[in-house]
Nucleic acid binder design. Structure first.
Length: 203
DNA sequence: CAGTACCG
DNA sequence: CAAA
């Protein structure tokens, strides 16, 4: 386990290849039920480069008019999100060290040219629970900073099967994805990267 | 500002 | 507003 500044935990190769493959199949089923959508920035409506969907009782969404929020239904289909699969609930039990289960699992799909700007996860009412992030597919350059945007940042590579835990002092740290490294994994036949983010929303 | 322009 |  790699301990980074602010107590952020990096668990390299936490998931072996068979577990990664099983997760990808599970995600395929979720995406079939809750299709990927293009999120838009609040105010400007500028589309983000990632596509996303969710599973869980709540999903994180954003659009021009209403901005960042959690809601119970898919913004395009209007249906409830699929349930969080047992394998992810088990992962949370094993790693998060938090009594209540996650309510939201954000599924972000990064094409090989997608990025995610530095941001904080601060839309959850329960900031005591950690945020658990799972990487699948092509590697990425991940960047983490401190709790203000101007704090110095540290960049490192995340590979398929890696898990990052933002908890404790690191819960509100700025973080983002600067680039995807194309063709660095054979897990996803069509390339790209999937990130799963498990979060507890309500105390 | 979960975004991006610009410059060196 | 800053890193890359």
């Amino acid at each position: 386990m790699m301990l980074l500044p602010n107590g952020i935990r990096h668990l390299p190769e936490y998931l072996d290849r068979p577990r990664q493959e099983a997760l990808v199949e599970t995600i395929r089923a979720i995406v079939a039920e809750a299709p990927l959508f293009v999120p838009a920035m609040p105010g400007t409506g500028k589309p983000m480069s990632v596509r996303m969907t969710n599973c869980g009782s709540l999903g994180w969404v954003t659009d021009k008019e209403r901005g960042y929020r959690y809601q119970e239904i898919h913004p395009v289909t209007g249906r409830p999100w699929p349930a969080i699969p047992d394998e992810l609930l088990a992962l949370w039990q094993d790693i998060a060290g938090y009594e209540k289960p996650p309510e939201a699992c954000l599924v972000n799909f990064y094409s090989d040219d997608a990025k995610m700007g530095l941001h904080q996860d601060r839309d959850e009412k329960d900031l005591g629970a950690p945020v658990l992030s799972i990487s699948l597919g092509n590697a990425c350059l991940f960047r983490v900073g401190g709790t203000t945007r101007t704090d110095r940042t540290l960049s490192f590579k995340l590979s398929s099967g890696d898990i990052v835990v933002l908890g404790g002092a690191g819960r509100l740290c700025f973080h983002g994805v600067d680039r995807i490294y194309p063709a660095t994994s054979t897990l996803l036949k069509n390339g790209g990267r999937i990130n799963l983010t498990l979060r507890r929303v309500n105390p």
